[in-house]
Simulated scan of single mutants.
Amino acid sequence: MTLYCDANATEPLRPAARAAVIAALDMGGNPSAVHGAGRAARRRLEEAREALARRFGARPGDVVFTGGGTEANALAIHGLGRGRRVLVGATEHPAVLAAAGPGATSIPVLEDGQVDLEVLKGLLAEGPPALVCLMAANNETGVLHPVAAVAALCQAHGALLHMDAVQAAGRIPLPQGADSWAISGHKLGGPPGAGALLLRPGLDLPALIAGGGQERGRRGGTEPLPAIAGLAAALAEPDEAGRLAALRDRIEAGLGGEAIIAGAGAPRLPNTSCIILPGVPAETQVIALDLAGVRVSAGAACSSGKVARSPVLAAMGLGPLAGCGIRVSLPWNAPEDAAERFLEAWSAMRRRLSKSAA
């Protein structure tokens, strides 16, 4: 039996989300149509919007449905960054870095992976108003940024704060203070194909995708109702933070002194460990564990299947070790023996690779 430990790439579909997707598929009807089927679809769409607004403390009218987290981040950055300097964390997801473009200024992180607040304060003070883009939780290490402190600095300098909350939503309470935040359905147990951008009251932006005026003119195209319904259903499910944190801690405690946990000194997501095995390339580890039936990853899963030196770990000052880290991210339905099964496979891999190196 395989052990899936790559939830930060995509979570297994929750049963409630599957049921919601099927129910929405069976409905038929375009949410923009005025006949009965269209009105029923519109009701389902607005129910999902209200559910997201309640969960995250937003107003329904400030929830913009998108095709996923990448689009939500791009919509925020292109819309809110107009006429502003764009500052991005050095460990941001490639989707945010690409949307920000080569002209964006990088904000360094400390050795534990958290943003350097002193450098950020200086960057905000040295120029015109900015848009700061910072993830709530890192996709590779699980490290949580001090969003409340960042928000206070932004407010003091007239900057806007966009928070990529794709990894955090549904796993931990979202920190307050951001002007906009992006979420993705398949990262919390919903289906792929739906995400959302949430805006603080009074903030608006132009559409990145022009179309027929859907989403109050902020995102053109017929809304993917089945995926949106699945997103809302997944978000309503209880989180497994306490149970997953205990499993993660058992994994880390059983690794021994040879392994290094990236970001161990910082607050992290309850389900995530970035485990560095010095001298062993990440790709070698991923393949070896896969052959043993354990599914992990290295770096961001949105890199077209490529495994390379991690820019996140490099930004944390880990040097050559940046190419030796794997990400273990436990899903909501991780079995109770997940820690023991992972450690058995990992220990066998370490012994085998150590003999090969000798």
Rank of each mutant, 00 (worst) to 15 (best):
I261Q: 03
A315K: 00
R268K: 11
V286D: 00
D290R: 15
G293R: 10
L277H: 08
I287C: 11
I275W: 08
A298Y: 10
C324L: 12
G265Q: 09
L291Y: 13
S304M: 09
L321W: 05
L289H: 01
P278S: 07
C274T: 07
L313G: 00
G265V: 03
I260K: 14
V307D: 10
E258D: 14
Q285M: 15
V286T: 01
S297I: 13
G319N: 04
E258L: 14
C302V: 05
C302Q: 07
N271Y: 08
A282W: 02
G257H: 13
V307S: 09
P281F: 06
V286I: 03
A262T: 02
I260H: 12
R309W: 13
G317M: 09
G319Y: 01
P281H: 08
T284Q: 08
P281G: 07
A300Y: 14
R309T: 15
P281T: 05
C324T: 15
K306D: 15
G265I: 03
I275R: 01
G305K: 11
I276L: 08
L255Y: 00
L318S: 09
G317R: 12
A308W: 10
I275Y: 03
P267Y: 09
A262D: 07
I287N: 02
A264I: 00
G256N: 00
P281V: 11
P267G: 07
G323C: 10
C302H: 06
G305A: 08
S304C: 07
Q285C: 11
L277W: 13
L277S: 09
P278Y: 09
L269S: 01
T272A: 12
L321F: 03
R295F: 06
I261E: 03
A262C: 04
C324Y: 14
P320D: 14
A282M: 06
G299C: 05
L289I: 00
G263Q: 11
L255R: 05
L313E: 00
V312F: 04
N271G: 13
P320W: 07
V312T: 10
L289C: 04
G279S: 03
A266D: 09
G317F: 08
I260G: 04
V280I: 14
G293W: 10
I287V: 12
G263I: 11
R309D: 15
G293K: 07
A322Y: 07
G256I: 03
I260Q: 10
I261A: 00
S273M: 03
G323M: 10
I276Y: 06
S273E: 07
P270H: 05
G323Y: 04
G317V: 05
A282P: 03
L291C: 15
G279N: 10
Q285L: 13
A298Q: 01
A300D: 14
P270E: 09
A301C: 05
K306G: 09
G265M: 03
G319P: 04
G305E: 10
P320V: 10
A282V: 06
C274V: 12
